[in-house]
Amino acid sequence: MWGSGAAWWSVREEASRQVLLALYLRDRIGIEAPVELPRLQGVIGVADGTALRELRHSPHHPLALHGPHHAAEAPEAQPAAPLPFELMAEPARSRLETQWLLWWATTVEPERFPSPVPLELAPAFGDLVALPVRGAELLLEAITPYAEAAVAWSDAAARRFADYQHEPRGSLKLAYAGLIAENERMHGRRARVFELTVQLLPLAASGAWWIGRNTVAMTDTLRRDPIGFSDALRPIIAELA
């Protein structure tokens, strides 16, 4: 986290595994919301052949039982495979999207969206996914078949950005401070007290998008572009400061 000497403002950059995981599962399931936020780079939805093969080989998917070594097992004893999002009928699609959006909000800014009911860890995801004990059943069913792939992908993505984040960043800190100083000169006053979290995400399109009251998603390509970085952050700083 960076801040001014007088603690008037603070900026934190992250590559949260929980945020990465939620977006990966959004893309694999095929949920469209939030429509303004691009898909992840290189992550293809369930209609993709690779995704379907992973689903069939998942222990949670009954198609995995159709091989010769499992002929004696009864498919009806296994959990049913969730339909791809685009094939689900209403109102199931709306319920699933609503449950994902609630989970997304609590993942991005958990302090602003405390759960009204107790949370429970989803076993297949270790300690990375905590869902309400009631009201998230459809979401849990939809995401569980992708648990192994999702955890592996989010771990690799977080490591990539962790290495990037730990590089010397004095110039980047100055870039944030410079934009805030510019805003102060424009308005003739000190910046308001604010906190900003920047989630560095491997999105397919370069840019910056609000994903919470004090949180933006930013691509690493934009972060490495000094002019594009300043142009994208200027209206964000203006709104907060």
Rank of each mutant, 00 (worst) to 15 (best):
L37V: 05
P82M: 01
T221Q: 09
V133H: 09
T50F: 15
L121A: 13
A80C: 08
L25H: 04
P110L: 00
L196Q: 03
L83P: 05
D27V: 07
G178A: 13
L174E: 13
E109R: 03
A6C: 07
A238I: 00
R234P: 04
P110H: 04
P202A: 02
A232T: 00
E36Y: 12
G67Y: 02
E54G: 06
L83C: 07
W100A: 03
F85C: 06
A181C: 09
L52T: 04
I31S: 06
L201R: 01
E195W: 02
L200T: 08
A175C: 09
V43Q: 02
A122I: 11
A147F: 14
L174K: 11
W2G: 11
R56F: 14
A191H: 08
V198K: 05
W2Y: 14
F161Y: 13
A89W: 08
A177T: 05
V43K: 00
T219G: 01
V108T: 07
Y146D: 09
P62W: 14
A150M: 04
L25I: 00
Q18I: 00
M218K: 03
P59G: 04
W210C: 00
E182F: 09
E90H: 02
S94K: 08
T219Q: 02
T144E: 10
A122M: 14
A175G: 11
L200E: 07
A80R: 15
P59F: 02
L139P: 03
L222D: 01
R39D: 06
R213K: 12
V117G: 04
Q99E: 15
A7E: 14
V43C: 02
L65H: 10
E109G: 01
E73A: 13
P79H: 11
R234C: 01
A15S: 15
S16C: 10
L52N: 07
Q199E: 15
N214G: 11
R12A: 14
A89S: 11
L140K: 09
L174C: 00
P114E: 08
A175H: 07
P123R: 05
A157V: 03
A149E: 09
P168L: 03
S206L: 03
E14L: 01
L201V: 00
V216K: 07
E54D: 12
A150K: 00
W104E: 00
T219D: 06
P226E: 07
R56Y: 13
Q99S: 04
E120N: 09
G3T: 12
A92V: 01
A92I: 07
V35N: 10
G67H: 09
E148S: 14
P116R: 01
W210A: 01
A147S: 13
H61N: 15
S230R: 15
S16W: 04
V35L: 14
V35M: 11
A74D: 15
A241N: 10
E111W: 13
P168Y: 04
A81E: 11
G42A: 07
V193Y: 13
A156R: 13
G49L: 13
I180F: 05
P91D: 02
P116S: 02
S16D: 13
Y146K: 08
I237L: 09
L201F: 06
P79L: 08
T98V: 03
T107M: 05
W153H: 10
P68V: 01
L83T: 00
I236F: 10
L174S: 12
Q41N: 10
V11K: 00
E90A: 08
E137Y: 00
G67A: 11
L23G: 06
